[in-house]
Design a binder for these strands. Structure first.
Length: 513
RNA sequence: GCCCCCAUGGUGUAGUGGUCAGCACGCCAGCUUUUCACGCUGGUAGCGGGGGUUCGACUCCCCCUGGGGGUACCA
């Protein structure tokens, strides 16, 4: 890409209502925008009215205000140093929602400049996670490492221009420097012509991060150390690569986790040294685990794959993730992807860190599960369990499960035989229970066809004949069939098992002594 | 240590100076009921503390406290 062209005019220009470039807009292919067109149309929307300031809370920025949004470009830039965590997934989702909401182009970039920790397996895991969540992207994935040549070129430009210098100072040296100069002054190294490359931070002044979620944040230069932007071997570091790649990628809106906020001035300083324009930032609040600490494997689902394995539906996960840090203007809870796209606005994102609450996800997942047709739910359960022929069991279990993982413990006995719950047997297959069970068997034996209404009539007849409570008959039957006290409805279960199998299980329970 | 961000019930949030502080999850109770769930009804619980500004602060400002992030030749 021709850099001079990129820098010829600012990436961002205030766009007023009516500033529509109608002719050009109409010709634009969507959603993809050719780079050539972009160069002519390099205008992006800033939040309306007071420029970069966060609009007053509670006010949505309507679609009509994103008039030139086809030129907006956002990116999701995960680091492949591990699986995609739910926090990363939420960041990906917000980028995706913003892109789909506004028509912006979403770029997937893999931040793999840490060669030690980045692996192809992790990249694949991230792609897999995004696929599962149905988060697609318009460009990429782009490997940051593949841009090494370009990084070198820019790096040398910075050095040649005096914006960066080589210095052998180590982390220890920096600490020593600070001990000497006090905390009031950031580290400033000497240009030694060798060693790691550091960016020269001006002593005076400050850098302001404009953020649509947080407003302006000012960082005084005197507190900043000259950051290392490339290792002694020349390989570049994150804060440099990200600035160059966002610039070259013509990223207009950087939506990422708040953990990057403190690093943003470094990236801004790189851009400034290059004479490049700034993107708009949106730093999302971080996600915490149930204990308020960082999310980790310890409290259940931490990665997207964990979510899948725990039996959550991707659409429920998306809905839940969207709600962690954002709420629709009318405070709705259950929102389809279409509704999310329709209602999402980055300006309404909360500033508070949120805790990942698996209980609420389970509830939400249950809601989505019950919305599925039995055929669809069966298909998902068969994929999840790796078993087939589940439909009848799904039909009678569907009201009782919140996750795909709940199904087998509830209904697996249909296929694998009764489970063994000694307490259940002891409680319900005592002398009385066995007596009731014998009556039930006798009543069920002649039922033909073995249909639910007839089965129910037969069993209720037993209840009546024995002057018993319903459960005194039903529970022994349940334990005989399922081995436990918890199962789908007893009549449905009998029908699904069929007469022969049901009688056989009852006989076996009676024989078990 | 220094820099930065954040602060409404247990949790996620609504709320832009005057509200009985709303919704959802959870929890508790009742109803329904063959177990467990689902569902329905009701209930419990909140503006972290202190100063200001104002006729009036959850809302604006400051301090404190608490939580989080950054401070890497990690991202």
């Amino acid at each position: 890409m021709d850099e001079q062209r990129v820098h010829a005019r600012p990436l961002h220009r205030r766009v007023e209502p009516g500033d529509l470039l109608p002719g050009v807009l109409a010709r634009l292919p969507r959603p993809r925008v050719l780079v050539e067109d972009l160069d002519r149309l390099r205008v992006a929307l800033h939040p309306p009215r007071d420029g970069l300031r966060r609009p007053a809370r509670g006010r949505d920025v309507g679609a009509d205000q994103h008039v030139v949004s086809c030129c907006m470009r956002v990116r999701f830039a995960p680091s492949p140093t591990g699986a995609l965590h739910v926090g990363g997934a939420r960041t990906a989702l917000y980028n995706w929602l913003h892109a789909r909401r506004t028509g912006a182009t979403l770029v997937l970039r893999i931040e793999d400049t840490d060669r030690e920790r980045s692996t192809p397996e992790n990249v694949e895991q991230i792609l897999d996670a995004l696929r599962w969540l149905q988060i697609d992207y318009d460009e990429g994935p782009i490997s940051q490492v593949s841009r090494t040549e370009r990084h070198q070129e820019v790096l040398h430009r910075l050095i040649d221009g005096g914006h960066a210098y080589r210095c052998t100072a180590t982390g220890e040296d920096v600490k020593a420097y600070k001990a000497q100069h006090g905390s009031e002054r950031g580290f400033r190294g000497e240009d030694e012509g060798e060693g790691a490359v550091r960016l020269r931070v001006p002593d005076a002044g400050s850098t302001v991060v404009h953020d649509v979620i947080r407003g302006d944040t000012t960082f005084d230069h005197r507190h900043l150390d000259d950051p290392v932007i490339a290792r002694a071997d020349g390989s570049v570091l994150y804060n440099f690569a990200v600035a160059v790649d966002d610039l070259d990628g013509q990223i207009t809106h950087v939506i990422r986790g708040e953990d990057h906020l403190s690093n943003t001035p470094k990236q801004l300083l790189v851009l400034e040294a290059l004479g490049a324009p700034q993107p708009v930032y949106a730093h999302l609040p971080l996600l915490h685990g149930p204990d308020g600490r960082k999310l980790s494997k310890r409290h259940g689902a931490a990665s997207v794959q964990d979510l899948r394995e725990a039996g959550f539906l991707p659409e429920a996960a998306r809905n839940y993730l969207a709600l962690l840090g954002w709420g629709s203007a009318d405070d709705e809870t259950i929102l389809s992807s279409d509704q999310l796209v329709e209602q999402f606005s980055i300006e309404r994102v909360s500033r508070n860190p949120a805790r990942f609450d698996e209980q609420k996800l389970r509830w939400l997942n249950g809601r989505y599960l019950r919305e599925l047709s039995t055929d669809e739910l069966t298909a998902r359960l068969e994929e999840y369990t790796g078993r087939t022929g589940l439909r009848d069991a799904v039909e009678i279990s569907r009201e009782k499960v919140q996750t795909l993982a709940d199904f087998w413990p509830l209904a697996g006995f249909v296929f694998d035989g009764p489970s063994d719950d000694p307490q259940a047997r002891e409680r319900w297959l005592d002398a009385d229970g066995r007596s009731a069970l014998r009556d039930a068997r006798r009543a069920l034996e002649p039922v033909r066809p073995f249909a639910q209404d007839d089965v129910e009539a037969a069993l209720r007849g037993v209840v009546e004949a024995r002057s018993a409570k319903p459960r005194d008959v039903f529970q022994p039957v349940r334990v005989a069939l399922a081995g436990t006290t918890v199962s789908p409805g007893i009549f449905e279960t009998l029908v699904v098992l069929g007469r022969d199998e049901s009688l056989e299980r009852i006989d076996r329970a009676l024989a078990a002594g």
